[in-house]
Design a protein around this nucleic acid. Structure first.
Lengths: 183, 183
DNA sequence: TATTGTTATACTCTATAACTATA
DNA sequence: TATAGTTATAGAGTATAACAATA
């Protein structure tokens, strides 16, 4: 294996990376590792996120959860179906709006989520271990802050209509199979 | 439309958001807006990212670009095909390794990328406008820093083998059709 | 009439495998 | 033998549309 002459690499040892690429790298690594932790969940990382939202009680019904996760409503059906089959969440008819179903964690689901959240927290720390001490927490805070602002802007629909139309189809799912060593 | 009793919402006005959810929201909004800007590119945001990497000369051949973007090598073929068809990039045989093709921007591609990068930069600023002055730039710096560390850890393969196996299939693509207003 | 949730269908995208050329 | 790139196929995931129940 031959090496290229370091023509450009010597000129720019650390080329300024595109923000989108970096963001993608970060999320990819994060989801990749979390996937291993939540491999038992039918629906992978998104099922975990549904559990996280249910645990935080930030959203009530499936439509609200779907909106928060940037998913189509139809996908929520499969996701909640899978979680409910394992008795991790339960669908409760909303007493106020009988069309809607409130998604809440069962005792089993709550216990499992607590355990998984611990692993995920460990992954986050590990993933950001390249940053200096306070920077990791700073990054975490800023990301959540920015996301909160974006969600608020999207819901309000003020000032920037482009934000609410940002419904990119992000396939966060992870195929069941990992790397097959042999063939 | 009836309102739920603010049982939980009054208890936790700003529930601690999951880092993964927030990261997803951020990337989703970013890609959604960038998609509109690069709608003329065959391949959407990923084609733009290929151009960005080609512009920075960080990677030489298709395989290296694919690795950096977390894509399969086979997808690079379609991506570069599309860009080459519009004469935005060109494949040059690597004089050192005749198997490889170096992907470089044409004059037309370079001019277009400069224009697009300006729009993207504007989007970034707009997207992070919810953060206080220096925080936006801080977030940008930290994300790139974290991504650089993750890439380095993945290539070196030291300490954390889990990082390199983080090959999540992230469907960042955006379907050609936007929202159809009427039906 | 609008919204929540479900189901079925069609489509897009991705990964797998096989192949060629080169190291 | 291993790697870069291409191509074709099969598979997984997603969105679209239609439906029933409720507001």
């Amino acid at each position: 294996m031959q090496q290229h002459p370091p023509s450009a690499s010597s000129l720019s040892p650390a080329p300024p990376q595109d923000f989108g690429c970096a963001l993608g790298t970060l999320l990819r690594a994060y989801l990749g590792q979390v996937t291993h932790v939540v491999s038992d969940l039918p629906g992978g990382t998104r099922a975990y996120q549904v559990m996280a939202i249910a645990a935080s009680r930030a959203c009530h019904n499936q439509a609200a959860i779907a909106e928060r996760l940037g998913l189509d409503r139809t996908i929520m059906t499969y996701l909640v179906d899978g979680l409910e089959a394992q008795e991790l969440v339960k669908r409760t008819p909303d007493p106020v709006d009988r069309r809607a179903r409130q998604v809440t964690l069962t005792a089993k689901g709550s216990a499992l989520f607590t355990e998984l959240a611990g692993h995920v927290s460990h992954i986050e720390r590990h993933l950001l271990s390249g940053l200096a001490g306070p920077d990791a927490e700073q990054l975490r805070t800023l990301v959540v802050q920015a996301a909160t602002f974006i969600e608020a802007a999207g819901k309000a629909g003020h000032a920037c209509q482009t934000l609410e139309s940002a419904n990119v189809s992000t396939n966060y799912m992870y195929p069941e199979r990992q790397q097959s060593p042999g063939e």
